[in-house]
Design a protein around this nucleic acid. Structure first.
Length: 261
DNA sequence: AGCGATGTTCGCCG
DNA sequence: TCGGCGAACATCGC
């Protein structure tokens, strides 16, 4: 379930299981997830160790000394660390074998995720046109990223070039908590409302990280649990509505979330 | 059986 | 240029 909170959860899992272990072997189960040539990928990594990791938006970068491994998880990506080869998970696409005979699997059921290499994190971020990381940005970052933008609020939040890390689910939650209609044009928000939105982005993402992306454990006044079935708004008991914005569907409460025009 | 799904990217068009 | 839309990518579960 990889939006920012999930990728942050993957990062913590990765850090606690896989850092500082020598990589002895790499098994590429399906090279369609690789953005680099398979042999080159292996040559660049085997014999090295994962020194540290950093997250930007939905991307995870791993420092390998002079080169960075880049993980993106698409819609169905995950990591799994295990000890015996017969425990290899279904949809394991890239398997790293460490010197201690343990394994780390990069899982991708639908193979929308991609594994890449880059010389420099900043260059990669620039090439992918990623905006500031949603969790680490300052209010100034946020304001200047939105400058002269007129997209729908939901589209703007999901636009990785404006803010990196927010996807379909969290954009719904953020707008619900901020009481903003998804189709409000983002440039219609005044400074005060923008600051409120900024604070809510942080709060919702922080909650997501603390709950490790387990949606069922979210607070009672969150709309996320109501995304699948058109339910009752937990704040006003009105009916949750579904809407479509550029091929993605979202949910909102028409009486709590007011459109500003 | 067909549709939709937590993501990204590209081409089209207003 | 910006931004909305729809398709494409690949697979699986409902």
């Amino acid at each position: 379930m990889p939006e920012l909170p999930e990728v942050e959860t993957f990062k913590r899992y990765f850090d606690s299981t896989s850092l500082n272990k020598n990589i002895n072997e790499i098994m590429v189960r399906d090279n369609r997830v690789l953005n680099v040539e398979e042999n080159n990928f292996k040559i660049k990594i085997i014999g090295k160790t994962f020194n540290s990791s950093q997250r930007h938006g939905k991307y995870l970068f791993v420092d390998l000394n002079s080169i960075f491994l880049v993980f993106h998880f698409g819609m169905t990506g995950d990591f799994e660390y295990f000890s015996k080869i017969d425990e290899e998970p279904t949809h394991s696409r890239i398997l790293f074998k460490f010197q201690n005979d343990d394994y780390l699997s990069y899982i991708s059921q639908r193979m929308f995720g991609k594994v890449d290499l880059t010389e420099k994190v900043e260059t990669f971020i620039k090439e992918k046109k990623l905006g500031p990381d949603a969790f680490n940005m300052t209010f100034q970052d946020f304001k200047s990223a939105l400058k002269k933008r007129s997209a729908y609020a939901k589209s703007a939040l999901m636009d990785q070039s404006i803010v990196a890390g927010i996807g379909n689910i969290y954009s719904d939650e953020i707008l619900y908590q901020a009481k903003i209609h998804p189709k409000t044009k983002i440039n219609k928000l005044d400074e005060l409302k923008l600051k409120e939105l900024f604070d809510i982005i942080k709060r919702v993402l922080k909650c997501g990280i603390e709950k490790k992306g387990e949606l069922s454990t979210y607070p009672k006044n969150y709309i996320i649990p109501y995304r699948n079935k058109k339910g009752i708004c937990p704040k006003c008991t009105g009916k949750i509505q579904r809407l479509e914005i550029s091929g993605r569907h979202g949910f909102f409460c028409p009486s709590c979330q007011i459109q500003i025009n």
